[in-house]
């Protein structure tokens, strides 16, 4: 799979919440695009991520 442009090997299909934890993210602080679709927060534990998926993981930063 691709996470923020970096290729990471995903051994098997896993829920998004697990993928985020494996990648070291605090899921409370991030929002995620999966293949250009916004992943609803209440679906993090249900949404199945495969090795072919493309994830963008974003969070709030300072900005004007």
């Amino acid at each position: 799979m691709i996470v923020n442009g970096q290729t990471i090997k995903l051994d098997k299909t896993r829920p998004l919440s697990e993928v985020l934890a494996l990648c070291g993210y605090d899921q409370a602080l991030v929002a995620v695009l999966v293949n250009d679709q916004v992943a609803p927060r209440n679906q993090f534990a249900l949404l199945a991520i495969q090795d072919s998926d493309d994830l963008e993981v974003v969070a709030f930063v300072g900005g004007g």
Binding site: N4, G5, C23, G24, Y25, D26, L29, V30, A31, E56, V57, V58, A59, F60, V61, G62, G63, G64
Partner: peptide
Amino acid sequence: LALRRVNALGQAN
């Protein structure tokens, strides 16, 4: 605030 890609390590809120 803005939204940006973040790395997992050293993630500050």
